[in-house]
């Protein structure tokens, strides 16, 4: 059997860290809590470093793309200029400085808000065209549910559609019962998936660190 020292070391570190942090949640021991806090602190620092490394990697890829004069190198140039300019502004004037605030107020915020506004119009358009491909049960349910929920949100001149609007209307029931039920199911699934993933990492079966 062939042993890889590198994988053994990395797997041991990952398993030990996971076990120590997990035990720290169930057993109240002072030194375990301290060790767990140290690990968490390291994790936060490594996450920040990973973000910086990601910025460097992104810059390197687009610099090579410009050097190779490949397709779309103009957009790479725009990306790099925006990246370094924003970084320079934030570093020089702080994240809450006047220039940084200007960038946010007049570039980032309008762009993202416009995209969401387009999303609203596109959703309406495709909801209309849903019947063009045929009338099915699920298309009817989808359209009717959307109309009911929308109708439950509006109140024209104080008039509320009886049975639909209001806290006891159909719209509120749809949001509270089916939506919440589905959301809880999703949360339970996510929790189980998280547990399984954590156990696999702790047991060494899953090695996202390429050990």
């Amino acid at each position: 059997m062939k042993f890889n020292l590198k994988s053994i070391i990395s797997a041991s570190i990952a398993i030990a860290a996971g076990v120590i942090v997990l035990i720290g949640y169930f057993i109240n021991l002072p030194y375990l809590d301290t060790l767990r806090e140290v690990f968490l602190h390291w994790a936060v620092i490594l996450s920040a470093v990973a973000l910086v490394m990601g910025i460097f990697n992104l810059s390197y890829v687009h610099i090579r793309k410009i050097a190779a004069q490949s397709t779309g190198d103009v957009y790479s140039g725009i990306l790099l200029i925006s990246l370094f300019l924003s970084a320079a502004i934030v570093i020089i004037f702080s994240p809450t400085g006047g220039f940084s605030q200007w960038l946010y107020n007049y570039i980032i915020l309008p762009v993202e808000a416009s995209l969401l506004a387009l999303l609203a119009a596109i959703l309406i358009y495709f909801c209309v065209r849903l019947f063009k491909r045929g009338i099915t049960l699920f298309s009817l349910i989808f359209v009717c549910t959307a109309l009911i929920v929308l109708a439950s949100m509006i109140s024209l001149t104080g008039f509320q559609i009886p049975g639909i609007s209001g806290a006891d209307g159909i719209g509120a029931l749809i949001v509270r019962i089916p939506s919440v039920g589905g959301a809880r199911g999703i949360l339970i699934g996510v929790a189980l998936g998280t547990i399984a993933t954590g156990l696999r990492v702790i047991m060494g079966a899953d090695r996202p660190y390429n050990g």
Binding site: I124, C127, V128, R129, V143
Partner: peptide
């Protein structure tokens, strides 16, 4: 809502 209803 009107567009969805009429369009549908």
């Amino acid at each position: 809502m009107l567009m969805i209803v009429l369009g549908s």
